[in-house]
Simulated assay, not measured.
Amino acid sequence: MTQWLLEWIPQVMERLSYFGIGLLMFLENLFPPIPSELIMPLAGFTVSKGELNFQYAVLAGVIGTVIGALPWYYIGKLFGESRIRQLADRYGKWLTISGEDISKANHWFHKRGGMAVLLCRLVPGVRTLISVPAGINAMPIGAFILYSTIGTALWCTLLTYSGYVLGQNYGLVETYLGPISKYILIGLLLVAGGWIWRRRQTQKHRP
């Protein structure tokens, strides 16, 4: 992460408090290089100093994230997978997004539907992109917001509590979560694969 982000994020949170948390999490969904793995742990550290309320900090993060997910949802709904893949391959380097990333997210969505939205909110690097296939496949907006809210609430609570416990070392959350998230993603893929295999086996044995 660039040095200016490390300096800018604490400044925004210090000046704008809960609104700053929500704003940063909103921007994190629009621009994936801004990491929630730093924003919410910093909020947790601020809570540990008695300057913020834990529940309100989490709530601000959830609201900002869900609102930030809506533009991607409507982009998917408006343009469709083929067009978005082309745009991602041409301009996605600025957002660290490629056409292949879009295809992977869409594949995940087809496997798990609404649960993919919930589960992928817990996986860095995928949590933002899953909004696109939800829009591409015209997932009902009410269901999208519900699953997004549940998954985001779990994610924000985990990160905020981690920052609360670690205190001034809240930055370690981002350092260690990156490698761990890869194993989480592999685990989720295995679970999805096992579920699909069992479903097919059940269908084969039906009369």
Rank of each mutant, 00 (worst) to 15 (best):
P10S: 01
I39S: 10
P32R: 13
M13N: 04
F31D: 00
Q55G: 05
Y18C: 03
L27F: 14
E14P: 01
L42Y: 15
L38E: 00
L30Q: 05
L38Y: 15
Q55H: 11
M13V: 14
K49Y: 04
M25T: 14
P32K: 13
G22A: 08
F45K: 00
K49M: 11
E28K: 13
L52P: 03
L38G: 02
I34N: 06
G44V: 11
I21S: 00
L24Q: 10
E14A: 15
M13E: 12
I9M: 09
Q11L: 11
E37F: 02
G50S: 12
V12K: 08
E51D: 14
Q55R: 04
L23W: 10
L52I: 05
S48E: 01
F31E: 01
F45E: 00
M25E: 06
P32T: 06
G50E: 06
S36C: 05
G44C: 09
M13S: 08
K49L: 15
I9N: 03
L52R: 03
I34E: 05
V47P: 00
F19H: 07
R15C: 02
I9R: 08
L30R: 07
F45Q: 00
F26A: 06
K49T: 15
A43E: 00
F54P: 00
L16A: 07
K49V: 06
S48M: 09
Y56D: 02
Y18S: 04
G20D: 03
F54K: 06
I9T: 07
S17Q: 06
M13F: 10
P10W: 08
P10V: 02
L42G: 04
L16S: 06
G50H: 14
Q11M: 04
V47E: 10
E28M: 13
G44Y: 13
I21L: 14
G44R: 11
R15H: 13
E14N: 12
M40T: 11
N29W: 06
N53Y: 08
P33L: 08
I21P: 00
